[in-house]
Design a protein around this nucleic acid. Structure first.
Lengths: 156, 156
DNA sequence: ATATAATTGAAAATGATTTTCAATTTCAAT
DNA sequence: ATTGAAATTGAAAATCATTTTCAATTATAT
């Protein structure tokens, strides 16, 4: 089940733009530039990183517009906010259904996986602790294949 | 396996103070006040909440000192930082060993549980995705027994 | 073409957290 | 008890991500 070299993420762009337009948002140059960056990235991206990349396509872009665009995309469920250790947030294209993230601590590459082996755990906790469970947060951290290699080399 | 009405959390206070002193930190009134609040709480507490409570015991306490004290306690592994949805942080007395948190979304009561059913999942991902997994983040959210009742009443 | 409502970027505001700094306090050694 | 060096303090200022304000611009339905 490869998740990497799958359908080119660029196919997301027209879909997202249609979705945005259908929801009454207007399609502007700024919007396109931000969508292109976040829709095609395999890495979690901070608003600043998105801004810096998108501004190459669309100079004059403002960082505030990136924040506003990400909010729209999140509202439509196209993009997912990722909580970082430092309390800031990064973003990544959302996965279908209920999935979790596996994030490379070195390069920030991220892959989704479905780990619904959690349901029994949650059911058990519901009864033993008397909690009515509503949701959960699960993120895994590690080194992706590329970073394992490059860090090994660097260590020599 | 009740986790609630267990050994009174107040026994943590002398232990923590000893631990702090043994590490070369000086025991001051501010420190005591902050330790007393966080060591005995069953809820996740923000620095501001700790400040407001501790300042009743030790007027003149500064919010900055709360931040500094929490940092010391975290360094010693006595306290654990909890990531919140809004990106801010709350704190709670750390559990023994590797545990996860179950947090009431209404009153912020928190209980630890050990959920090491995750190891097989992580091992599998290591191989299928080529990641070398280093750690994970798991938090469950729900309503504690008390809040389930009080919210039911309120709904009537 | 036009009117209107959405969108824009810049600048200012916010709010949690951190840093700076001079004054105070702890505690080990007298 | 006294002392003195090093740790700790609170206040004020600085930082930094994020949000709000606002007047100017722009997309789109008509």
């Amino acid at each position: 089940m490869e998740n990497n070299q799958q359908p080119p993420h660029s196919t997301r762009i027209p879909t997202w733009l249609d979705s945005l337009q259908a929801s009454g948002y207007r399609i502007t140059g700024s919007l396109r530039a931000v969508v292109e960056v976040i829709a095609t990235s395999n890495f979690i991206c901070s608003p600043m990183e998105i801004y810096l990349q998108a501004a190459r396509q669309y100079p004059g872009l403002g960082l505030v517009t990136v924040y506003r665009t990400l909010e729209k995309l999140e509202d439509l469920g196209l993009v997912e906010r990722v909580h970082r250790e430092d309390g800031c947030h990064s973003y990544i294209a959302a996965a279908e259904g209920h999935q979790h993230l596996l994030i490379c601590t070195n390069c920030k590459r991220a892959e989704h996986f479905s780990g619904d082996d959690l349901s029994p755990l949650m059911a058990e906790l519901g009864t033993t602790r008397g909690f009515h469970i509503q949701g959960h947060w699960l993120q895994l951290f590690g080194l992706c294949r590329d970073c394992q290699c490059s860090l090994e080399e660097a260590a020599q």
